[in-house]
């Protein structure tokens, strides 16, 4: 006989259990290395964009913090990793860690600006912080190279073994590994008591505080973690291209990542990854035949998607997956 205690346990376990589709997803990501050997550089970009979108998902999908300036942390991470490598420490993993710490500290410092206030103030504050950083990087040319970009970055082989190559072999496997590890951490995190309290704050901040959750501190914590994730994405970008330009701090980066997450759907961790694949694929395909008008098409796609297609696509995925046993899709309502 199953007791209520057992039912409670299996229900709570069911919410975080690995679904077969997840294994397939990661197996495909790895298999792509052999399936599409001529597109490794593009796939590397997709993996980095996916990590950046995962970072946004942690704050937007799970904690309800909207941001139009998430590129601030991407850019900081990229410059941190790039500068470290330029000044003699070219080990990619040390650079990655350094970039994450720098971005996390920045996220922690910026968090008081975003934890209080409504969506509009958050949009403006995050946008403002990113604009300031962009201008700082532009003006401080002695450090960042300004508009010319940061050049002279040399990255040593990963673990001292795998040299970065022109075809992106090492780059893709390195990025994919980092994305996978950080994904595992994020997955653990969102299904923890801490992650549950973030969803509580997102759903209803009044009830969250009446349930004993201190909203400001929890939001500051996830904002800091998400900043570290964005910094990791920036580091991957700097290390795999061995170049950092002002473009990493540009507004379009923040807008793109929002777009990517909305395409894939926030609040279930895979949204950013699926969105990144779709976004890059669209960008690549459309740019191939109408390079000048890429923005027009993505704009049109966005409008149609948000108005109609989102419920169509996500509803379709959800109903399709319902046929698999044991699935618990969790999304923002």
């Amino acid at each position: 006989m199953t007791t209520l205690h057992d039912r409670v346990r299996s229900s709570l376990y069911g919410a975080r259990r690995w679904h077969p589709v997840e294994f397939i997803f990661w197996a495909l990501a790895l298999a792509s290395f052999w399936l599409f050997p001529r597109h490794l550089l593009l796939m590397n970009e997709i993996a980095i964009l996916a990590l950046f979108a995962l970072s946004l998902d942690l704050i937007l999908g799970y904690a309800g913090i909207v941001s139009l300036g998430h590129a601030a942390f991407l850019g900081l991470g990229a410059y941190a990793a790039g500068l470290l490598a330029k000044h003699g420490i070219g080990d990619p993993l040390i650079g990655l860690l350094f970039a994450m710490i720098v971005s996390a500290v920045a996220g922690l410092l910026a968090s008081p600006l975003v934890v209080k206030g409504n969506d509009l103030t958050r949009l403006m504050v995050t946008l403002g912080v990113a604009l300031i950083l962009h201008e700082v990087a532009n003006s401080w040319a002695s450090l960042t190279g300004g508009a010319d970009g940061l050049q002279g970055i040399t990255i040593t082989p990963v673990l001292g073994l795998f040299q970065f190559d022109l075809f992106g072999k090492t780059a893709y496997l390195y990025s994919l590994s980092v994305v996978f590890v950080l994904f595992l951490v994020a997955r653990r995190l969102v299904h923890s008591p801490f992650g549950l309290s973030l969803r509580a704050i997102r759903d209803n901040v009044l009830r969250a505080s009446a349930s004993g959750v201190p909203p400001s501190r929890r939001l500051a914590a996830i904002y800091t973690i998400a900043a570290a994730y964005a910094g990791a994405a920036g580091a991957l970008m700097a290390q795999t291209t061995q170049f950092v330009s002002l473009d990493v701090l540009d507004f379009h980066r923040s807008a793109d990542v929002m777009l990517v997450l909305i395409i894939g759907g926030p609040g279930y961790l895979y949204g950013g990854m699926i969105g990144a694949v779709v976004f890059k694929f669209l960008q690549d395909t459309i740019a191939a035949f109408t390079p000048q008008y890429w923005m027009f098409w993505i704009g049109l796609f966005l409008v149609l998607f948000v108005l109609k297609g989102r419920s169509l696509v996500h509803g379709g995925i959800a109903s399709l997956l319902k046929h698999f046993p044991g699935l618990r899709m969790r999304k923002t309502p």
Binding site: R9, S10, L12, Y13, R16, R188, L189, H191, S192, P193, F194, G195, L196, S197, S211, G212, V213, R218, A221
Partner: peptide, 15 residues
């Protein structure tokens, strides 16, 4: 879990 003070534990599993 908040009553028990677990809300700050990012790697625990509720079950």
């Amino acid at each position: 879990s908040e009553r028990l003070g677990y809300g700050t534990r990012p790697f625990n599993a509720l079950d």
